[in-house]
Design a protein around this nucleic acid. Structure first.
Length: 322
DNA sequence: GGTAGACCTGGACGC
DNA sequence: GCGTCCAGGTCTACC
């Protein structure tokens, strides 16, 4: 099987840094608990490829990426870029040290990186499918989006790209992918990603540019169909902008159960914002690793979670019972 | 600017 | 096995 090697930051640990955010459990990602590898198809410029990512020599050593077919030189570069985005290989040890200086609670475990998707489009769609639905519903929607619309490569189906989703009828998304009222919003979203900025499309390059201000990014995201305050803040953390905490029912549950806050959801949400404000540009990471720590205290280390079983446990009702 | 109600699916629960 | 209720964030209409 063809193999690539990817250099990692000195402190990079695949099992810890990959299994750090819920999206690693969503299709087409497949984390193998037994092998401690991540497998998924990537959509390259002209065709797809399935990659299996491992770190056989342990933390800080290069990643071994097996590919389902031999890649051309430009395809290798594209695959490296997508894997780098997904695993946050761009956040070197210095970036993580800066977070630990602000919040030393995570220094011993080395936590700091959060898993995301190979593309912004996939992150945005995954966020829309996580709104107003319980976690098992999100798992199902992503599975069906891949099964119904995903391109087949080596017996696996990838995540649909914007072009494919933009061409899909809303009725198909609703009937076959069970996305409900999100059908038109998803198609419209895909069209915004497809169209050029001159034709009212999203300027993805500008949006992903670190020089673009948080406020401009937030305003642009809120203008997208299906994106409200929670989704915008979540997409921003996926883009590496950690100053805002996306507040949802999980946040309120966490604040009441772990932080001991009382009162209405609105009142608790206001206190949450104040609570994490001292962490500044790292507020989301501080919040998230508290939440993740709680999940792991209930279900064991995330690198031991099976998508089809553990995933179903993440509902507010069950966590409240726990 | 704040709030109520609709949107849709799937799981839990009672009968 | 069926019907009912509920959780979940966004959007629109209305005050």
């Amino acid at each position: 099987m063809p193999t690539l090697s990817l250099r990692t930051p000195d402190d990079y640990a695949l099992a810890r840094d990959c299994c750090s955010y819920g999206y690693f459990l969503l299709a087409p990602n497949r984390w193998s608990v037994r092998e401690q590898t991540l497998t998924r198809p990537l959509r390259l410029r002209d065709a797809s490829v399935v990659v299996e990512i491992a770190q056989p020599k342990g933390a800080g050593t290069p990643l071994r990426v097996r590919t389902s077919r031999t890649l051309a030189k430009d395809e290798k570069a594209e695959a490296r870029a997508q894997i780098g985005r997904m695993l946050r290989l761009d956040e070197d040890a210095g970036v993580i040290d800066a977070f630990h200086a602000r919040d030393p609670r995570w220094k011993a475990s080395g936590r700091g990186r959060l898993f995301r998707s190979p593309t912004l489009f996939e992150d945005v769609i995954k966020t829309v499918t996580s709104c107003n639905v319980t976690w098992p519903g999100t798992v199902q929607m992503n599975l069906r989006l891949c099964e119904v619309l995903g391109e087949k490569e080596a017996e696996a189906r990838g995540f649909p790209d914007a072009a494919k989703m933009a061409r899909t009828r809303p009725q198909t998304l609703r009937a076959r992918c069970r996305v409900g009222y999100r059908d038109q919003r998803l198609v419209e979203m895909a069209k915004r990603f497809r169209a050029s900025p001159a034709r009212g499309g999203l300027d993805v390059e500008w949006l992903e540019d670190p020089r673009t201000s948080d406020e401009d990014v937030r305003t642009t995201l809120l203008d997208l169909p299906g994106i409200g305050p929670y989704a915008a803040a979540n997409i921003m953390q996926l883009m590496g902008r950690y100053a805002h905490v996306p507040c949802d029912t999980e946040t309120v549950r966490h604040a009441k159960l772990v932080l001991g806050y009382k009162g209405t959801s609105a009142a608790v949400t206001r206190r949450v914002r104040t609570h994490y404000a001292p962490f500044g540009d790292h507020a989301f990471r501080s919040y998230w690793f508290e939440l993740w720590d709680y999940y792991e205290s209930k279900h064991g280390p995330a690198h031991t979670w099976e998508r089809d079983s553990t995933g179903k446990l993440f509902t507010a009702a069950l966590l409240n019972k726990a």
